[in-house]
Write a protein that binds this DNA or RNA. Sequence first.
DNA 1: CCATTTTCCGTACGTCGTACCAGAAATAAT
DNA 2: ATTATTTCTGGTACGACGTACGGAAAATGG
Lengths: 214, 214
Amino acid sequence: MARGRPPAHTRDEVVAAAIRIADAEGLDAVTMRRVATEIGAGAMSLYTYVPTRDSLIDLMVDRVGGTVAWGELTGQWRADLLAIARGQRALMLAHPWLPSALPNRALTGRNTLAYLERGLAALAPTGLDGPTRMELIALVTGFVASFVTAELAGRTPSEEQIAQLGQAVASGDFPQLATVLAAPAGSPEPDFERIAGWMITGLVTQARDHSVSS
Amino acid sequence: MARGRPPAHTRDEVVAAAIRIADAEGLDAVTMRRVATEIGAGAMSLYTYVPTRDSLIDLMVDRVGGTVAWGELTGQWRADLLAIARGQRALMLAHPWLPSALPNRALTGRNTLAYLERGLAALAPTGLDGPTRMELIALVTGFVASFVTAELAGRTPSEEQIAQLGQAVASGDFPQLATVLAAPAGSPEPDFERIAGWMITGLVTQARDHSVSS
DNA sequence: CCATTTTCCGTACGTCGTACCAGAAATAAT
DNA sequence: ATTATTTCTGGTACGACGTACGGAAAATGG
């Protein structure tokens, strides 16, 4: 049946290796040569399974998107949307390269589409129209990506940054900023649940108030 | 007074040239060699004015941030925040590389800090605490970046994407998505003013409801 | 005129994505 | 069994990239 030399690997094996590398060393470490070495192949052999590096990253995004075990929708949009946001955050914390990989990417993978489908279904009870629901999903996704990025980056404010901020504050040109930065060290961290809750309730409430339908 | 060979260019000239290139050809076209050619210098001469390519991009971001002519704050947070969002959107539409340059960047430039300062001041009348106001500003900025990215990308949905989407829809596994995508061609585009308005009002309203102070 | 300081920039190294293509390994046809 | 056909393998190579290095060039202070 299958003519020609049989493949020594699979596309999935390649994508899995790439994800393993990205998780451990960041997205920049995902080079064709590095991934090839990881699975014990020559660099050029990868092109049998994947057309370009960029499409490999697309596949990585879609693959990790399939690892989230979504439960059933409850029919209560607030809870359902919050659960989606929570799942996304967990995913991004597990794969820190994900937020930086998301922008400028074609969202055509099955898992990604399934994610959109789920978001649309969760928002169905709001009675909002399709495009608006789409926009709200994008908004929530964008928020989670921003939050997680800040969460991950915030752990290591570089010395250079601190120095520059200190200088700026000392100049007296930024009084508001000075007050905020002067907050006590043990200040309360921004809480994901709290802010995600505001965001979702606020957005949907406003959207419904201004919408024509019920 | 000034010993040594005098510089043939200035840092500002370098940054301006880089912005010109990015505006016309995208951020990827901003290479050290290309920028050097643009100002009529050798590639390595740039390192007199800028330590690395990455810092050059930092400077680009801060420079375009200084080109927005902000008016006076009115003291009405809703209008002020919306004006800020509007200004950011105009900036990003004028410099399409900006949304993609923003993530993972140190926000230490004077103009960037001035932007934060302005946002904090605009939110002062809400009575919200510093960290919460910071978070809201980040949220609004993230929203605008997402929106503009979608706005710019949406103009050119590639054939490949359309084909894949069509196939996915035809599979019948994504009924919600199918409905949304089947919307008439002349469907109403997501309106920035409308959604930004929801976002701001919704967020702040929620944040105040759940806050301890007034 | 010369020492000193600063900028200029050609050359070069290591890295990247990936085009090309000869060899290897399988099946199908004879 | 031999040969033809198809497919995957991976070495070599090309044209980018950022940037380290270091000599040449151009200014000033003595």
